[in-house]
């Protein structure tokens, strides 16, 4: 059993500290993740797919063709999951496209069969919620978490086939089982705005500003995300917005794996928390969470 690990681009090449906590919690849970040589970009469903659908299908199918673990593919990134699930979905319902893609792949000695299951890491965690709960050594008391699901973790639901597209429960469920509180807030289901940055930076900033405003009003003291694009949008733009608008955003942004790792008793030092732009240490002090 076990899963083939699809890392994608953003986490390993820009935010490797998020990979650390993700690997550690799966190891602790006894769920095997296998590294695979030779993956390319998934490719990005908000980038490459938008400029060339055929290339997106072909490179996605090539990635899927490299997988041989029984559990299929697991990824820490919602974008990679959407692409790999989306490629499966498109090619399995369209024989003509599947044949065309396989013609391309034959040029490099690969073949797409369409039998590899793809899962988001949070899905696997939710499916193992009892194990997660049993591994909590330090309940996250005082953590008032604004859960941000993000779009591609849920939608299009016909392709993702996981959780409800508008009233999801899985991430809140995991967070609560760590001993933290999930705080409801306005605009919880709205997009973070990251993909629009490629076309219109101001619009993208406005979207994240609206979300942060709503989170501030809710009384939450941190945010949890499951997608590296959302992570960057929340983490990298707070200071910029503060400069621009005199706002005072100061929310530590956690990857779900980081919160879980903390509750499992891992130390901030070994999780690379020093690489966060908004240091979580201030929050730990304010809620007397001893690490």
């Amino acid at each position: 059993m076990g899963y083939d690990l699809f890392l994608g681009c953003v986490i390993p090449a820009r935010l490797p500290y998020l990979e650390v906590s993700s690997r550690k919690i799966f190891e602790k849970l006894g769920i095997e993740l296998h590294d695979v040589d030779g993956f390319s970009c998934c490719p990005d469903p908000t980038g490459i797919e938008q400029i060339d659908h055929k290339t997106w299908l072909t490179l996605g199918a090539r990635n899927l063709s490299l997988c041989n673990s029984n559990g299929g593919i697991i990824s820490f990134c919602s974008g990679c999951v959407e692409t790999l699930k989306g490629v499966n979905y498109s090619l399995n319902k369209d024989n003509e496209a599947k044949k065309e893609v396989n013609d391309y792949l034959s040029k490099v000695g690969k073949a797409y069969e369409g039998k590899v299951e793809v899962k988001h890491f949070a899905q696997v965690l939710y499916e193992n919620l009892d194990k997660v709960k049993d591994s909590v050594e330090k309940p996250l008391e005082g953590f008032k978490v604004a859960v941000h699901y993000g779009c591609h973790y849920l939608r299009p639901s016909e392709i993702i086939e996981w959780d409800d597209p508008f009233e999801p429960v899985t991430l809140d469920g995991i967070v609560k089982n760590l001993g933290a509180e999930s705080i409801d807030y306005d605009l919880k289901m709205e997009c973070c705005g990251n993909p629009v940055e490629k076309s219109d930076k101001d619009l993208s900033l406005q979207m994240i500003d609206n979300k942060l405003k709503a989170i501030k009003e809710s009384g939450a003291n941190c945010v949890v995300v499951v997608c590296p694009a959302c992570y960057q949008q929340f983490e990298f733009n707070q200071r910029e917005l503060n400069k621009k608008n005199n706002s005072e955003y100061d929310f530590p942004i956690f990857y779900l794996s980081e919160l879980i790792a903390l509750s499992f008793g891992f130390m901030p030092d070994e999780l690379g928390f020093k690489f966060h732009r908004i240091k979580p240490s201030k929050l730990f002090e304010s809620i007397s969470f001893t690490v």
Binding site: C151, P156, F166, C191, P195
Partner: peptide, 14 residues
């Protein structure tokens, strides 16, 4: 309208 402004949030599809 400018199609590049779509955030691909997929709400419309749902």
């Amino acid at each position: 309208p400018n199609p590049w402004l779509c955030s691909t949030c997929q709400k419309c599809v749902e």
